[in-house]
Design a protein around this nucleic acid. Structure first.
Lengths: 191, 191
DNA sequence: ATCCTAGGCCAACGCATGTTGGCCAACAAG
DNA sequence: CTTGTTGGCCAACATGCGTTGGCCTAGGAT
């Protein structure tokens, strides 16, 4: 079959990418149920049946459209007191550089599969960082969970609900207020 | 028409309440789109058409089902340094005493009308408290917004996404970690 | 006893959705 | 040039949705 080791370039790759891009936009804007395959297909300027051909069904499309690499900083690479600020900064960049995370959060709020995918990301990408930065690794899950409440809460109110006073906050304000919170959740002694 | 001043008891009030209760459960569990009128009617053990008769349409049903009074504590009634803890405690109680807030958050994440309703609650019930507790009332919106990110983030991860490490947190742990955060957002000098 | 109203159900409509299978054109290999 | 494969579209399907209108029945008022 495909003896070629490198990714075998298919002639339809352009279409496939167009579908994924349109899907991300729609999922981010409308959530899972209201992002219809027909609308996604129209955005990608192809027939709805092509979506099925390439991704099987709607769930498969979502799985293919939303793949996240948080690219969190390596804790060892910076001063221990700066980890809070570095994480907040990284999260702000992540949410603004593309719509994948907004799509994931919107879908996760309504869809079981979406929620489970977020749990997976937390487990495999957030937890390892927490383990390496927490004073007592046994407390890592709780501390990582606390940090997640603050960071996801920011994303929720700013990028999903678009609560006006949260949208109005400047990047520097957010950094200045939230960095100490995250720093404390991860490194301060238990209260 | 209704010259009677007190609420005119209709014979159908039991049914109406059953519909609202079922609606809250379904909206909380499934979000707006997947909470179907048919399913709600089945839960309430009546015909779907009754829902339309009493609430006009699905949007009207949602509006009737979620009406929230946060019942936030009056800042003047307690020591200034305890306001953070009091607010966190009140929020935990609110989210656990019924499903209205979960429904509202799930719907707000996907539905424009739901998001606007949350903005209304923030404006009319959260802001007034912030104005009375903030050192500089001009900063009240930003500070209230920050508190909202933390509290809604907790609700999101604990009651909607059900991130296991967040669900595992004990009430006392949450209070001990989050109270200082809220206290700082509302009353500490700007960083 | 007789109206009349309100509570309730049934059956159906129109529509949008996810999904399927068949058909056609363009490209690649022989 | 022929042949097989791939990319693509069209038309349709079954289903479930919100919503509507008509009909029946039981209370309450007179």
């Amino acid at each position: 079959m495909n003896d070629v080791n490198d990714t075998p370039r298919r002639r339809s790759d352009a279409t496939r990418d167009a579908i994924l891009t349109a899907a991300r936009e729609r999922f981010a804007a409308d959530g899972y149920e209201r992002a219809t395959i027909r609308a996604i297909a129209k955005d990608a300027q192809i027939d709805p049946s092509m979506v099925m051909r390439y991704y099987g069904n709607k769930e498969g499309l979502f799985a293919a459209a939303v793949s996240v690499d948080l690219g969190l900083p390596e804790p060892a690479s910076l001063p221990r007191d700066d980890i809070g600020r570095a994480l907040v900064a990284r999260f702000l960049d992540l949410w603004e550089e593309n719509e994948v995370l907004t799509a994931l959060l919107r879908v996760g709020a309504t869809n079981q599969a979406g929620a489970e995918r977020m749990q997976g990301i937390f487990r495999e990408q957030v937890m390892p960082v927490a383990v390496r930065v927490c004073p007592d690794p046994e407390q890592a899950p709780a501390r990582a969970a606390l940090a997640a409440t603050q960071l996801l809460g920011l994303a929720l109110t700013r990028y999903v609900l678009r609560l006006p006073p949260t949208v109005a906050l400047a990047r520097e304000e957010i950094l200045a207020w939230l960095a100490p919170t995250i720093q404390r959740y991860l490194t301060a002694p238990s209260p």
